[in-house]
Simulated scan of single mutants.
Amino acid sequence: MNTIRVTIKDHLSIITLDRGKSNALNREMITELNDILINIAGDPNIAGVIITKQRTFFSAGLDLIELYNYSEEEAESFWHLFLNFTATITAFKKPLIAAINGHSPAERMRYSPGLRL
């Protein structure tokens, strides 16, 4: 795996985001996260998951620089991949904790009290 590290401790899987300074979500990272969550879901020896970060940022959100350069077909493929990943997280049956121990600007914007969508 190139963008995440996985360790097992006391029946918990610790997934560490490790993609550059900002841990921006690109195709590779989303694929790796989705695959590992599917594997963990089927592993009776793992009771839960903690997702954390390696550097300053927990995650800056989607890698907009990479997405900007996608063709229409690549963008459509990416969104199918991303929606599948969100479905995997939503349907995950084991405890899943995000230890947001660093910057996470996309998440902060989403819950800003004054933000109007």
Rank of each mutant, 00 (worst) to 15 (best):
L67C: 08
G48W: 00
I50L: 06
N23W: 11
W79T: 04
G61Q: 11
E107L: 12
F78M: 04
N26I: 06
N2A: 12
N69Y: 10
S104K: 14
E73W: 03
R19N: 11
F85Y: 13
E76R: 03
G114V: 06
V49F: 09
G20H: 02
R55F: 12
T86W: 07
A60K: 15
L67H: 08
G61W: 06
I89S: 03
L33S: 06
K93T: 09
I40T: 02
E28T: 08
V49Y: 02
G48R: 01
E28K: 05
T31G: 01
L17Q: 03
I15H: 04
E72K: 10
L62Y: 14
Y70H: 02
T31E: 03
K9H: 08
I15D: 09
A24S: 11
D43H: 03
L115E: 08
K94V: 00
E72D: 12
T31P: 05
L33F: 03
F82N: 04
M1T: 10
V49E: 03
L117S: 11
Y68Q: 15
P95T: 01
R55M: 09
L12Y: 09
K53H: 14
N84F: 14
S22C: 07
H11Q: 04
L62D: 12
I51P: 05
S77Q: 13
H103D: 03
G102C: 07
R19T: 02
I38S: 15
S112K: 05
I38E: 14
Y70N: 04
H103Y: 14
A87E: 06
N23D: 07
T90M: 13
P113H: 01
M109V: 08
R108H: 13
G20D: 10
K93V: 11
D10P: 00
A41F: 08
V49N: 01
T90W: 09
I46L: 00
G48F: 02
T52V: 00
K94W: 04
F85V: 06
H80M: 12
F92H: 10
L67M: 14
E66H: 12
T7D: 11
I46D: 00
L81Y: 05
S59H: 09
T31V: 00
L25T: 01
A60P: 07
A91T: 12
V6N: 08
E76C: 13
N69V: 06
F92R: 11
G61L: 06
L115D: 05
D18Q: 09
V6E: 15
Q54P: 06
A91W: 15
L83R: 15
R55P: 07
L117R: 00
Y111V: 04
K53A: 05
T56M: 14
F78C: 01
L115C: 05
G48Q: 00
E28D: 07
K9E: 10
Y111C: 03
Y70W: 05
R116T: 02
K9Y: 07
D63V: 02
A75S: 07
M109P: 02
E66V: 14
G114D: 09
R55E: 15
H103R: 15
R27L: 12
L33P: 12
S112N: 13
A24M: 00
E107R: 03
G48M: 01
K9C: 09
D35K: 13
A106P: 10
K93M: 10
A60T: 14
I97R: 08
H103T: 09
L67K: 01
D63G: 13
I38K: 13
I38Y: 05
A91H: 15
D63W: 05
S13V: 09
S112Q: 14
I30K: 00
A99V: 07
I50P: 09
A91V: 13
K93P: 10
